[in-house]
Computed example of a mutant assay.
Amino acid sequence: MRNTARWAATIGLSAAAICGPLTGASVASPGSAPASLYAPSALVLTIGHGDDVATVTPERAVTLTCAPKASGTHPAAALACAELRGVGGDFDALAGRDDVPCTREYNPVLVTAQGVWQGKRVTYERTFGNECVKNANGSSVFAF
């Protein structure tokens, strides 16, 4: 009987040593890999007046998370994510419109995007001549 108790203890401890780390694998801890199968897509978008990112203070800022689902403080997160997916995350490829009449007033509007798109670091900035030209860009990404 004494050998049976020893074997039971040995098997129990071995099982705990082997299976113990596996039970904690589903619990996310700080600094661990994300539990999602999606590459992260999370951005901070800003708008401010001026033409130099070093001197412009953002007037508005929103967050936009696109994976695994659209969320964040962006007012049209689902539409903005769909537009970014449509151009593969290339902000320069977002559709512009030529049919919107805008004044030639120069009151520069600077938009920025910083964060991660499908696991890759993103830094983007663009200056528009004025608010009308920015809005004529036709993209909902910077419409907030």
Rank of each mutant, 00 (worst) to 15 (best):
W117A: 05
C132Q: 04
T57F: 07
S29F: 10
M1P: 15
E105H: 07
P58V: 10
G50D: 00
S32I: 04
P40A: 15
A5S: 14
V62R: 11
P21R: 02
A33D: 12
S71E: 13
A5I: 14
W7H: 10
R126W: 03
A9R: 09
A5R: 12
G89D: 08
T103H: 01
L64P: 02
A82S: 15
G48V: 03
K69D: 15
R104M: 15
A39E: 14
T23A: 15
G138S: 02
K120S: 12
R6A: 15
V27A: 15
K134D: 07
G48Y: 00
T112H: 10
A136D: 06
C81G: 06
L43W: 06
G48T: 00
A113I: 00
R85G: 10
C81Y: 06
S71P: 05
A39H: 12
A54F: 06
A76I: 07
G129A: 14
A136W: 06
C66P: 03
A82N: 11
V100G: 09
L110Q: 00
A16V: 12
R104C: 11
P108G: 07
T112M: 09
S139R: 04
I11H: 08
G96Y: 02
A93F: 05
V56H: 09
N130G: 07
V27P: 08
P101M: 06
V109S: 00
T23W: 14
G119P: 02
L45R: 05
A136N: 05
L22M: 12
A9L: 15
V56T: 03
H74D: 09
G48H: 05
S140K: 11
G115H: 02
K134Q: 13
L94N: 03
S41Q: 05
C132I: 04
A54L: 11
T4E: 15
T57R: 11
P75W: 02
D90P: 07
S14A: 15
V53R: 12
A77N: 08
M1F: 12
C19V: 13
P108H: 08
S36Q: 13
N107D: 15
A28M: 12
A82W: 01
T55K: 11
T63G: 14
A35H: 07
T63C: 08
P75T: 00
A77M: 04
T57K: 13
C102H: 01
G50C: 01
N135A: 14
N137E: 12
E131W: 09
R60M: 10
V56A: 07
